[in-house]
Design a binder for these strands. Structure first.
Lengths: 252, 252
DNA sequence: TCGCTGTTGTGAACATCGTTTACTATGCTG
DNA sequence: CAGCATAGTAAACGATGTTCACAACAGCGA
């Protein structure tokens, strides 16, 4: 055992530890009292420090919040993965359903975190930085330590479904040219490993899932449904049905 | 002319005027610098007042923001109505599409307002208070001065479509019983004037529209699409298609 | 062991925020 | 004219993010 092979400096180790403690304390406040409670001074107070001390670890309040957001997203991705792996590889549609349910369950169980991450316009963490340039078609390894966004989990699932049970997809000539142009951009970004119709189905599904979960967590559905779960299940059934009509002809 | 017939007191008239001016100033700050700029002192400063003066008109900062939200919602409802009335009554599906487009257009042209109203969890204006207990089935009068929410506009459109061109709707026996229970609650709330399947279609459509617009305004789609409009149009086409398959049999 | 150096934390201060309190004008009403 | 409700102000309190000067402390080379 030749000591630790260039293990991180002792200094940087303790530094990372306090940095993590700060984020943990912030997280605790977040779940306890909502995003508004994420104040620099209160966090410092909670861990027996004064506010300026935190500036040794984060450049600003916004930076700290951003770091917490990143942690939350990583955790969400993990929750989605474990939810997905509840169902065996042989049932990709079931895996998609399980992942969608995991998304909703996580959001309802972590409303404050969800609001922090998803209820932001510009400042919020849009996906681009976390979206990997390429996704391998068949392999589902994916999760190399959470440095890739939860969006990839869903895209990977659509790849699984497509490769195992090709579903009916819109003919490319049916789609309006401006949509095709947008999809080609995205396809190139993702590595050109899936037909444009599959990407359209993925995006459409992502929007539906996002909308269903967001509208429920934000309470913008309470006017109609006391318990939106049955409606959510109906949506999942719709999605599964659309993704299970067997493919017949047409080119990629 | 027997004076003004119980016209509002002169005092209350000037009072309402300043109240409106406060909200207008707040609104100006909102569009100029975002929801975070909606501070009591800055608003007062903008109109040559001091902060405590505003407490003569609004009980708290939160009250003021709430009032601005109400104004915004009213304006949104108006935008939806005019968008809807772009298309003649004889084409209810076209009217629905126009209304959905008006929703998206308004949201993109009023991002700050949209964020203020829709990016809130608990505090935000959920629909219940603005949702009328009953909606008249055929008549589309609706807009008695904006005291009813924009949700009614959409529900009214589904009523129009249903009455003019009954579409294929899930048989009630197909739906899981817990969903039926939820829909019955909502149906009673709305006056029991539409079949449960129509209400399910309405809610499903509202969730899709909400998701599509929210995901775009919040920038959570920029990772894939530079211009989400074609995708939005695709969604509208899907919705229209689902609402245009003619009805065949089954009871209400 | 001594002394230097960089890191970590504190205290005070500044500008801003929401809110309350006491006080002063102003204009309507009897 | 007297009285009074209304609209507005100034000052103050606690809280926020942020900066700056300064003190304690650890680690390292001589």
């Amino acid at each position: 055992m030749p000591a630790q092979t260039t293990g991180p400096d002792r200094r940087t180790r303790t530094r990372d530890a306090t940095s993590a403690e700060i984020k943990a304390t912030a997280r605790a406040r977040l779940v306890a009292a909502g995003p508004a409670a994420l104040t620099l001074r209160a966090i410092a107070r909670d861990m027996g420090l004064t506010a300026p001390a935190l500036y040794r670890y984060f450049g600003s309040h916004e930076d700290l919040v951003g770091a917490v957001c990143a942690d939350v997203l990583e955790e969400l991705t993990a929750a989605l993965s474990t939810g997905r792996d509840t169902v065996p590889l042989g049932d990709p549609l079931g895996r998609l359903g399980a992942t969608c349910r995991a998304f909703r369950t996580w959001a309802l169980g972590h409303r404050e975190e969800f609001q922090l991450v998803f209820a932001s316009a510009g400042a919020g963490p849009t996906m681009p930085p976390t979206m990997p340039p390429t996704i391998s078609p068949g392999s589902v390894d994916g999760d190399r330590k959470g440095d890739l966004s939860f969006g990839v989990v869903f895209l990977g699932l659509f790849a699984e479904i497509w490769h195992q049970q090709p579903f009916a997809v819109r003919d490319i000539t049916d789609l309006p040219p401006d949509l095709v142009a947008q999809l080609q951009r995205f396809s190139a970004y993702v590595g050109d490993v899936l037909p444009l119709g599959v990407l359209a189905a993925f995006l459409s599904g992502w929007v539906r899932l996002y909308g269903a979960v967001t509208v429920e967590v934000f309470g913008h559905l309470g006017f109609a449904l006391g318990d939106p779960e049955p409606m959510f299940e109906l949506m999942l059934a719709d999605m599964a049905r659309e993704l299970s009509t067997p493919r017949i002809s047409s080119g990629t």
